[in-house]
Measured scan of single mutants.
Amino acid sequence: DEWTVEDKVLFEQAFSFHGKSFHRIQQMLPDKTIASLVKYYYSWKKTR
């Protein structure tokens, strides 16, 4: 599952609005599965 720079920026924006409500985040990133969002979240969180 490839994440473009745009995907990553959108994820951060969606996360700032919705927190860990992955269903709502998915509405902003409809091409990503919930599982993909959760997996990305945990790898992204480690870099914070």
Rank of each mutant, 00 (worst) to 15 (best):
T47Q: 00
I25T: 04
V5L: 09
Q27W: 00
S36L: 00
R48V: 08
F22C: 01
K20W: 07
F11A: 04
T4L: 04
S36K: 06
A14F: 09
S16V: 10
F15E: 01
D7H: 13
P30H: 08
H18F: 06
E6S: 01
A14R: 06
L37M: 04
S21M: 10
E12Q: 08
K32F: 02
K46V: 09
E6V: 02
G19M: 06
L37N: 03
W3M: 06
L10W: 01
Q13H: 12
Y41V: 05
K32Y: 01
F22E: 03
H18D: 06
V9D: 11
D7E: 06
A35V: 07
K39S: 12
K8L: 02
L37K: 04
A14D: 05
K46G: 12
H23M: 15
Y40A: 03
L29C: 02
L29A: 01
T4P: 01
P30F: 12
Q26A: 02
M28E: 06
K32I: 00
E2Q: 08
H18P: 03
D31G: 14
A35Q: 11
F15S: 06
V9R: 12
S21W: 13
H23K: 15
K8H: 06
K46S: 09
Y40M: 07
S21N: 15
D31N: 10
L10K: 15
K45A: 10
Q26Y: 09
I25H: 04
V5E: 15
M28K: 04
T33Q: 05
E2R: 13
D7C: 11
H23G: 05
Q13W: 03
S43L: 08
M28Q: 09
P30C: 04
Q13K: 09
S43D: 14
T33L: 04
D31H: 11
E12R: 00
A14I: 05
G19C: 11
S21A: 15
E12F: 06
R48E: 14
I34L: 09
Y41I: 06
K32L: 05
F17I: 13
S43E: 13
V9H: 11
S36H: 11
P30D: 06
S16Y: 10
W44D: 15
A35C: 09
W3D: 03
F11S: 03
F15C: 15
D31R: 11
K8P: 03
L10N: 12
F15W: 05
K32S: 00
Q27K: 09
S43M: 07
W44I: 06
L29R: 03
K39T: 09
Q13F: 06
H23W: 07
Y41M: 14
Q26S: 02
Y41G: 01
A14W: 05
M28Y: 06
T33A: 07
I34D: 09
P30K: 12
A14S: 00
D31K: 13
S43V: 13
V5P: 10
P30I: 04
V9F: 08
P30R: 00
W3V: 05
F22N: 11
D31Y: 14
V38D: 06
F15Y: 02
E12K: 05
L10I: 13
L37C: 00
I34W: 04
S21T: 00
H23Q: 11
Q27C: 03
S16L: 11
K39G: 13
K20P: 04
S16Q: 13
L10M: 15
F17K: 14
V38M: 13
W44E: 08
T47C: 06
E2C: 13
F11V: 02
R24G: 03
K39N: 11
V9C: 01
R24W: 01
Q26M: 09
D7Q: 12
K46A: 13
K32P: 03
A35E: 15
F22Q: 00
T33G: 11
F15G: 03
S16D: 14
V38I: 15
D31F: 03
F11P: 01
Y40P: 10
E12A: 07
K39M: 03
A14L: 10
P30G: 00
V9T: 14
A35N: 12
T4V: 03
A14V: 03
E6Y: 04
K20T: 09
H23Y: 04
I34C: 01
Q13C: 00
L29N: 03
E12H: 06
E12C: 02
D1G: 14
W3L: 01
F15N: 08
K8T: 08
I34K: 05
Q26H: 06
F15L: 05
T47G: 10
